[in-house]
Amino acid sequence: MLETLTLSLSIVRRNWWVYRKDFLANISPTIADPAFLTLSLGVGLGAFVTSVDGHTYLQYLAPGLAVSTAMFTAFFETSYGFYVRMTFENIFRAMLTTPIGINEIVLSEFIWVALKGAMMVSGICLVLALFGLFTNPWLLPICPLIGVLVALPLGAIGLIASCYVKNINQFQTVYSFVISPLYFFSGIFFPLAQMPPALRIIAECLPLYHGVQLSQALFWNREVVATWTVHAPILMVYSTVLVTWAFRRVRLRLQT
């Protein structure tokens, strides 16, 4: 068990070394996208919106953007990123000749996306806090947890997709039909109360919705304990199911 963890961490370190080589290029979409969204939607569109749930539109948008950052980071890393490592770079073939096994490879993916998710969310939350969008700065240290709780299920979805796609272009389909709906219908851009009841129930089942709930509670300092005791466990259940599924699929894929 300890050796599994040590080996997984050595793969995580490898990912970090590769990542930091091109740090600016790697980090820019994660920073730039939410920044421009804040500008265009928050400031531009926000001018037409008087109040959402008692918040300015910018205040409403901020927590969801932090969560979406974790989602995109995790999904892209384990879909395109993992797929390229697996098929084009053949990294795992060589790794598997060392004491590393498939379990260590999958575990390392989850540790890596959890860390990345935590870092990204913390960064975004900090920046948004500087703009006064984070009500109670004492809650900032909890933000990384949102990253972890969202990155695990979304990272699992990416890994599972990597095992099913026949070529790299098919991730487009996964993106359009899985990731986009999560992004648009999890309460990031508008309260789900706006939706017809049937659709609303479906949307409330999506994992990202629960992440958004956690984030909104922190940003707005609103019913933090009550919200977290409900939605964090739900995300953990999602993580457990999806992560287990991902372990199975990757094992089938890498073991011939």
Binding site: V18, K21, E89, N90, I91, R93, A94, T97
Partner: peptide
Amino acid sequence: VVTQDNALDESL
């Protein structure tokens, strides 16, 4: 093991 493909990390 020297695998048939090199599988080196090209950017490192």
